[in-house]
């Protein structure tokens, strides 16, 4: 770990200013990912602006019936918040499917959005990685890519975004509230993370000197028909090979609206709204679920060790939708 300087920000404007004036500065909150990456010299900011004392740690109702999650509320406090549990249980389930209790106690909601990929090559400086060192090459494409992406990959990067929480937020169509030197703006969740393209070193559309202040959930919480299904190599404390956040708005057995977000398959939580619309005003049947699963994975491309994810994702989508629609088992 390289030496760095540190200061504690007293308000959002000061924090933004401190980072905008210093290209080598980064915000730190829970630090559950940044500190690890600093220890192995994958990230090496020269200055850290500690934002943990900013007043961004509350969960409040919004005027339009939604909920505003302060960026510094911990993942644990969010998952176990009564309003979140009752109105957005999909989000609770997704958060609790991730990491460990200890990490969720420390990690913040804003930080969760900004965690880096878990690609082995990104973590190992002995190997080339375009995300770590732009232009050095992608070792994963021809390497051990069992945990890598099957959708939206580029020749420069096949890494995935590791978050569970973000998969639920994508399905719920949250909005990310950010503050920067030029004021505040709101980023729809679908536009927050990026595909790798030829700039895999840039994970999100948040500018370097912008800070996340809150995540806003719209009123619609799909609290009746939802599932977060996470498939992984062990029952806890493992990143998703494939995860599915399924949310249905149902009228009897008819689906009014369907949301399906996938984790573990792309550089960002993956949605295909055109495919989701296929389910609108359709009966909840396994056959219909299969069709939408096929459509979502149509463009998927597997690599040597992760081609199984394509079929796995399809089956996971079907299962998640069956569970969300509360279909009888095997129906």
């Amino acid at each position: 770990m390289r030496p760095f300087t540190y200061n504690r920000a007293t308000d959002v404007a000061a924090a933004v200013e401190q980072v905008s004036l210093n290209k080598e500065a980064k915000f730190i909150a829970g630090g559950t990912n940044l500190l690890d990456l600093m220890k192995i010299d994958v990230m090496h900011p020269q200055h850290l602006v500690d934002i943990t004392r900013l007043a961004l740690n509350t969960i409040e109702d919004t005027a339009n019936g939604g909920l505003r999650l302060g960026a510094l509320v911990t993942n644990a406090d969010t998952a176990y918040n009564e309003k979140v549990e009752q109105r957005y249980p999909l989000l609770s389930h997704a958060i609790l499917a991730g990491a460990s209790a200890q990490l969720r106690n420390k990690a913040t909601d804003g930080g969760n959005l900004l965690q880096r990929t878990r690609c082995y090559y990104f973590y190992d400086k002995a190997t080339p990685c375009n995300k770590r060192e732009p232009g050095s090459g992608c070792s994963a494409k021809e390497g051990f890519n069992r945990i890598h992406a099957i959708l939206g990959t580029s020749e420069h990067c096949i890494a995935t975004h590791p978050s569970d929480m973000c998969v639920a937020l994508a399905a719920l169509e949250a909005t990310v509230q950010v503050s920067g030197p030029n004021g505040d703006r709101a980023i729809p969740f679908a536009d927050f993370h990026r595909l790798p393209g030829d700039t895999p070193h840039i994970d999100s559309n948040l500018k370097e000197d912008e800070i996340i202040t809150a995540i806003e959930l719209p009123a619609k919480g799909f609290e009746k028909n939802f599932t977060y299904l996470k498939l992984r190599d062990r029952q806890s404390y493992a990143f998703a090979l494939v995860s599915v956040a399924a949310a249905l708005d149902m009228d009897g057995n008819t689906i009014k609206e369907a949301r399906i977000a996938l984790g573990g398959v792309a550089h960002k939580p993956w949605r295909n709204t055109a495919a989701e619309e296929m389910l609108a005003n359709q009966p909840a049947t396994t056959e219909n679920f299969r069709k939408v699963a096929e459509t979502i994975l149509q463009e998927a491309k597997g690599f040597k060790y992760n081609a199984f994810k394509i079929e796995l994702a399809k089956r996971a989508i079907v299962r998640a939708l069956q569970q969300a629609a509360k279909l009888e088992e095997g129906a």
């Binding site: 190599d233 029952q235 493992a238």
Partner: peptide, 25 residues
């Protein structure tokens, strides 16, 4: 422990990616 033969190096060299059972297993 997965060896990447291009580099002759074990790649999943931490306990996040080298899996051993947790209580839930």
């Amino acid at each position: 422990t997965f060896m990447d033969h291009t580099f002759g190096r074990f790649m999943n060299h931490d306990l996040a990616e080298y899996h051993v059972p947790v209580n839930a297993d």
